[in-house]
Design a protein around this nucleic acid. Structure first.
Lengths: 160, 160
DNA sequence: GAACAATAATTGCATTTGCAAATATCGGTC
DNA sequence: GACCGATATTTGCAAATGCAATTATTGTTC
């Protein structure tokens, strides 16, 4: 018998939402939101990104990210500039202020992760991580069947 | 060296967002959103819930859920009624229509999960699930230190 | 090199979200 | 049994979100 509460997406989502919520509250005093932290941490790892790449890296929808980056620029956390050799794209970077701030926050993120996983041997956590990374890749194979299912449905509807 | 892309919350969030996004698109043709599916699947597993319990079970913020349930009631998917013996609380249930619909959607959810995990032995998936469940519990221990950190910060600010 | 398709980012607009305040009911106390 | 604090849900309001359309630039074809 199927149970939502034993399903993989449910268990995943629950931990993700809760960790996000707790971390949000923890960093609120620094004047940044969780999505802002994610953007800064992504840029700290890989700087000089285009908007689209940053969206893919952070899993933030691109129009949301465009506005978010605008707000972060206003606050002096990042820079955003059109490229000279390709005016369609834009290069986003941390400012020194943004870098300093994210380097204050990363230890908090590390601590949160530490607490979350401390009851498990590090082997099982690294396994878990690689499973999550591979599952993410597997998801790509679902794309075609989604389109297919919707096409079928649409055709049936047109006929009806 | 810390890398966001190797952190547990990052890997978790990415899979969660992506699975949600794909599943949303897959079920859009049925006229329901992902949060609606979650509510229905939760009620299918455990019916006759109060709003607060349903919020805890689905990790949906309670005011959001209140409105969502209102909309689902309008659409004839659930019922919501104040209890006779305790007028503060309300009992939420699936309607026959809601039940029929969720029973169409659950097999799709099962299939998605299947595809996501098919490259791994079922043992490592059940391990993964129990780790996720335990981590969720461990997170409770972070609560007190969040308040503490914010208190400290606030005090410092007042002094300054 | 003009016209057109393709790529990248932004913006308009309607919907969703979440906090805080309001509302409603209950349980206990005097 | 009137009053007060606690519990449960809903609602007001401002901010965040996402889709679709728009703008801007580049690449391609004739």
């Amino acid at each position: 018998m199927y149970r939502l509460t034993n399903s993989f997406p449910y268990l995943l989502n629950r931990v993700g939402v809760q960790m996000g919520e707790l971390f949000s509250r923890r960093i609120a005093g620094y004047g940044v939101t969780l999505p802002m932290y994610r953007v800064m941490a992504a840029l700290w790892e890989t700087g000089d990104q285009r908007l689209g790449d940053l969206a893919a890296m952070t899993t933030i929808e691109i129009s949301t990210l465009s506005r978010l980056v605008g707000e972060m620029k206003r606050r002096g956390l990042v820079t955003r500039a059109r490229l000279k050799d390709n005016g369609r794209t834009v290069a986003i970077n941390l400012t020194p202020k943004g870098r300093t701030l994210v380097e204050e926050l990363i230890p908090i993120a590390i601590h949160f992760e530490e607490v979350a996983v401390r009851d498990f041997p590090s082997k099982s956590i690294s396994d878990l991580k690689s499973v999550l990374a591979e599952i993410y890749e597997s998801l790509k194979s679902l794309e075609p069947e989604i389109e297919e299912a919707n096409k079928v449905r649409k055709a049936a509807k047109t006929k009806a």
